[in-house]
Design a protein around this nucleic acid. Sequence first.
DNA 1: GCCGTTTTCGGCCCGACTGTTTTCAGTCG
Length: 568
Amino acid sequence: MGSNKDLAEKLSDIADILDIEGVKWEPRAYRTAALTISGLSEDIGKVYREGRLLELEGVGKSIANSIKEYVETGKIDKYEDLKKKYPIDFDSFRKIRGMGPKRAYLLYKKLGIKTVEDLKKALDEGKIQNIEGFGKKSEEELKKNLESFMNVKNDRLLLGYVIEYAGSLIEKLRKSGLFERVEIAGSMRRMRETIGDIDILAISEKPEAGMDFFSKMDEVKGIVVKGPTKTTVELGIGTTCDIRVLPKESFGAAMQYFTGNKDHNVKLRKIAISKGLKLNEYGLFKGKNSIAGKSEEEIYNKLGMDFIQPELRENTGEIEAAQEHKLPKIVEYSEVIGDLHAHTKDSDGMNSLEEMAYAAEKRGLKYIALTNHSKSLPVAHGLDEKRFSELNKKIDSFNEKSSIKILKGVELEILKDGSLDLKNESLKELDFVIGAMHQNLNMGSKELTARLIKAINSGMINTVAHPTDRIIGQREGLKLDFDKVMEACKNNDVLLEIDGYPERSDLPFDLVKKAKSYSIKFSLGSDSHRTEHLRFLDLAAAIARRGWLEKKDIINTLEYKEVLKLRR
DNA sequence: GCCGTTTTCGGCCCGACTGTTTTCAGTCG
């Protein structure tokens, strides 16, 4: 029994070794496949068993066979053979800046370095600088990068906790007066739930002065590279930040290029080539003439397709849809007018009912569902029927006198056997019921799926809370059979939730897309436990956009009274 | 090894930066 991550690492290792052997192009193929698999949100074993391996980007006959081997035996012969020949810990070296496969091999050949520990020892003994192709500076560089590799806890940061920080960086740069324009690009612009670094693009008449200003900002801990138009620094918060300065006439091309993702860009470039054009960060070129570059729109249009929103740029069919003019009109952030998952201090939140409601109103919302935990979650001070009934009265009187409305809700425990934590009479008094599994999750996939489906079939819940139950960086999602779950949701008019709380970001966008294909509708929630968390609703909206959802797919775009009608 | 709106064979994204070279390879995004 292996994992997607382990398989992806093995395929990357194969790529590295083939690279060393001077094999042309094959490494690229293995890397593409590795990338696809590491980004997959379903178990590769499942994909294999359902005979869908060849549908994966970059997986052909040969790699599909390797995956088959891996799923069935946990091993890949080709990998084992190559690894015997090159017993090098490529997987760790890959993560050290400046250590690619070629250098790793050179150091192995010359000094017998196989592991990170070996490398550290050789560096400490000053042996690296004498190797041909290395020098004193490379040695120093490697030392530094090895250090930061050993200190790194988690390589990607959660969008929800970095986005405001990045916003303040941008503001500082704008106010410096050295730039005509400064914008965020990269995975942050695509609103991916985790980001590897922060990418900033700028237009400037004085790029060198701009680079100087940037590299000396308070937030900067160290400089990684610094050139006249491109600088990379390490920030105090534990991530790197790239800034790139480009000419005005190229800014659209640069935004397009640096927003990514990589696969999306590669495909666009191939399309450019097929039309006898060339696309790079400076523009779209016919021979030496630029035919587009100022704006992203003109680049997409000149390539024969509609403009594609940043959140969609993942190479998961958006380019084909844009060519056929069939992209959905995805939901706007401003169209989400209510929050359908929040807590107060009645259970495990920090703020009162009034504080939460008024804070939501201040953010421009028209309603908020207060969905406190139910009694079987004692760690969160879950409420019993009696306390819910009292809270409901408070909400009714609040609603009478205020313009923002509160929905009487619950985040209801789905018990071990699939029964519900509150009596039906009590549930009938509520406006919005979120079914959730927080406890007793150590059961088999079949049992978990059956448990959830029993709750969905009860007719008493509106939506399923954070359906995969993943915690990013801490635990994988539950191995639910989502085809069955979605089928059940569809048959019972039960929604799936998109929980915007940064660690959850759940459903993930690819499962959102899948659920949409079942014609399921969605509820969005910030899962706020304090007023400051209400901004996470935008992150839920971002996932909705990344999952191609339109206004009509999301009930938070309905008016308060319409949402009330959904409750039977 | 993968893939197809020039193709089932013959291509495979492209430019910046660094350090070591003495014109470029390796790495990165």
